[in-house]
């Protein structure tokens, strides 16, 4: 009997011990895993414009804050900044004559540590060579932390936040742009109400486009979309002011997401940049495709009916011999 009790106790102790061990590994594993909100990196500002001249040395600042729950280490990197296509996907790898700025960047210190809620102002120096031509130069300061990488994960995440630098070097500056393409619809059969424009920068300095879309109800004259309109997300669907970098083309679209399924509207699109302004006006018919199909069916039916009626009238007319 005693042996049985001892054996039961032994088995019970083993089960408890294994459970505790399992719980320990599970807990340990959870502690190691990085959770959302643990490592959160914030920079301010996200982009800066620098006015430089050849031979100058400039010292700038960037604030980095830990708004997560855990402390982390981070380091600074300088990268070229360019864009890949008309949609302006950022490119932090390609180098050309407008990305020399990253070679002029240096950091007095590159490795830092931040406790939760702690903010640090990091310094960067720009040493402009004496013989550089005037115009725009573009780079990114990358703030990187590897502490967000979970060692046990299939995908170990390295977090980077890019602070963009738009530098204007005094000298021979060429400023010029061309409106390459624009579109404003006239008939919409279910597709989104979108106005688009593509502008090419011919110069060596960046500039901004101001692209607006105003829409009025054709019959009442009520303005239903304007550059000042703000949607529930805080976006301005009737206004965009994108930057165009030198030697690139940029396309921009404004979409009226609240467009009704049926109506007639007067749309005005303006594209302005540098000293140029283009205005395009268009009467826009919005009609669902099923309604357009139905109207076509009715017209065909009407024509058949008229033909039949005409034939019948001709047959029933008194014949003269």
């Amino acid at each position: 009997m005693l042996k049985k009790v001892l054996r039961l106790l032994f088995v019970f102790a083993c089960v408890i011990a294994s459970g505790v061990t399992q719980a320990f590994y599970s807990l340990n594993s959870n502690v190691l895993a990085v959770e959302p909100g643990d490592i959160v990196l914030q920079i301010n500002p996200a982009e800066q414009t620098l006015d430089l001249y050849p031979g100058m040395t400039f010292t700038g600042t960037l604030k980095v804050k830990n708004i997560g729950r855990l402390p982390f280490n981070f380091n600074l990197l300088s990268r070229p900044y360019q864009v890949k296509n008309e949609s302006y996907d950022p490119d932090f790898v390609t180098e050309n004559s407008y990305t020399k700025l990253h070679n002029w960047l240096s950091f007095p210190e590159t490795n830092f540590h931040l406790e939760p809620n702690e903010e640090i102002t990091v310094l960067f120096n720009v040493t402009v060579p004496d013989d550089v031509p005037g115009g725009g130069q573009y780079a990114a300061i990358i703030v990187e932390t590897r502490d967000s990488a979970d060692e046990n994960a299939t995908v170990r995440v390295v977090s980077q936040v890019a602070g963009l630098l738009y530098a204007h070097v005094a000298g021979e500056e060429h400023i010029g742009g061309v409106l390459m393409q624009h579109s404003l619809p006239s008939l919409l059969l279910g597709s989104p109400f979108t106005a688009s424009a593509t502008v090419k920068n011919d110069g060596n300095l960046d500039f901004r486009i101001r692209h607006t879309l105003s829409i009025k109800d054709f019959f009442t004259g009520n303005e239903v979309l304007s550059p000042e309109t703000i949607d529930p997300n805080g976006d301005t669907p009737g206004l965009a002011t994108p930057v165009v970098l030198p030697a690139t083309s940029r396309s921009n679209s404004l979409t009226w997401t609240g467009a009704p399924q049926l109506g007639v509207f007067k749309a005005v699109q303006t594209v302005s940049f540098l000293d140029q302004e283009y205005t395009f006006e268009q009467i826009v018919f919005i009609c669902p495709i099923w309604l357009a199909g139905g109207l076509l069916f009715l017209v065909i039916l009407m024509i058949i009916w008229l033909i039949l009626r005409h034939r019948k009238a001709k047959q029933s007319r008194p014949q003269a011999f």
Binding site: A33, V34, E35, P36, G37, D38, I39, V40, L41, Q42, I43, N44, P45, A46, E47, K65, I67, G68, S148, A149, D150, N152, A153, T154, V155, R156, V157, S159, Q160, V161, A162, G163
Partner: peptide, 18 residues
């Protein structure tokens, strides 16, 4: 003019990160 990022790899299978 802030930009913040919280990036994690998670949710593999069986509640694991793999």
């Amino acid at each position: 003019d802030i930009l913040s990022l919280d990036a994690v790899a998670f949710s593999g299978t069986n509640g694991d990160t793999a």
